[in-house]
Design a protein around this nucleic acid. Structure first.
Lengths: 201, 201
DNA sequence: CACTGGATAGAGCGATCGTTCTAGCCATCA
DNA sequence: TGATGGCTAGAACGATCGCTCTATCCAGTG
């Protein structure tokens, strides 16, 4: 079917499959470690299709995949953090860390943050990938920041705490993956909750 | 001079050059993105030398490089955190984050944490690299933990806070690299100090 | 019906990957 | 002086990399 916008469970287009598969592979193997041919194979597409939809080559595919992943995680953040007016941002953030821990374990500790993975490999070059990763992190920070502002945080505090929350979640996720344990994320969640709560008086 | 063990500033051996260069390259380009031939060239060694000292190939070189980097960072941690009996662990941790920020800026935002970089690329495989990275993170946590214990922390708190401190520093360093700004690390340092201080009453 | 253009299909290009292999250098010691 | 062995040197191998190219398929349109 050609873009049946009404049916929710329509078969994904070739382009969408390429993006989704790329996101997953970058998440697990990094940008350099993921080959175009592997993407084509696992997306059940051919090399021709990949270069048809992404004339920019591997980098263009990665940019689309990272943009997709970034928005996906942003949605998750918004959902887990709850509405900006809710009463307990500390518990919401801890809940967020717990959900990340569960998802990580269920994937066999492989499906971490594709943005972090790709960012670390392209640091020297001021590539488009770099820019997408920077925007993603900044966007996630904003979501947390606005949640804190909604809970009555001072503007400066909200910004600084939001930056720290995202950094800590990123770092704790990597630590959890390496240690193959939920504990780093659980601990980070509890400590972040304590930190956030310390502003509430 | 052939291994003048007395002179402190002796020219480093070929093996040492290979390890040091590998550590720096993995730091900047990741494990997959760094080639054996590039290592040989930049270390002013030949391929033959690399395989002579590391019959295990690329993975063995990386393990040695990561072990070296891990110990180097552990030394830095011990020095910056000060003696276990010192009075203010919160300030020491913030100081630590600031030093990381300065070093990162001075390198042009390229020289981050090689352990994080390598760990993320080898998650699926239970390789020796994985093990080295896990040991490195655990070791760093222990250093922070003992510093907190020395400051009078409860055992459980010390462990959980130490895990969080390392995770946050890791995450903030990545964020700082991507954003090309010292701010994420500075913010993380201040918030970690606040968190640690919150236990002191 | 012929035609058109988006999409698919995969052979093949040059380059580079990690690795292996043989040859030779050179300080050491009999 | 000749032999030994740690170390250096780099050519070469098969595999795989990102990418280009041509050919084909096929739904939509006149």
């Amino acid at each position: 079917m050609a873009q049946n916008s009404a049916a929710p469970a329509a078969a994904p287009s070739t382009r969408d499959r390429i993006v989704a598969v790329s996101a997953r592979l970058i998440q697990r193997q990094g940008y350099v470690g993921t080959g175009i041919k592997q993407i084509a194979t696992e997306a059940e597409a051919t090399l021709g299709s990949v270069y048809h939809f992404f004339p920019g080559g591997k980098e263009a595919v990665a940019v689309a995949a990272l943009t997709y992943s970034a928005e996906e995680f942003a949605d998750m953040l918004r959902e887990l953090l709850g509405p900006a007016g809710a009463d307990d941002p500390a518990a919401a953030i801890a809940h967020c860390a717990d959900e990340l821990a569960v998802a990580l374990r269920e994937s066999g500790w492989t499906d971490g943050c594709p943005v972090t993975a790709a960012a670390l490999e392209t640091l020297g070059s001021d590539s488009a990938i770099q820019r997408v990763c920077a925007d993603a992190l900044r966007g996630w920070e904003r979501i947390v920041e606005e949640r804190l502002l909604g809970a009555g945080f001072d503007a400066g505090d909200a910004r600084e705490v939001a930056t720290t929350v995202i950094s800590t979640l990123e770092g704790a996720e990597v630590t959890a993956q390496v240690a193959r344990s939920e504990e780093p994320l659980r601990a980070a969640g509890r400590q972040l909750a304590r930190l956030v709560a310390s502003y509430g008086r």
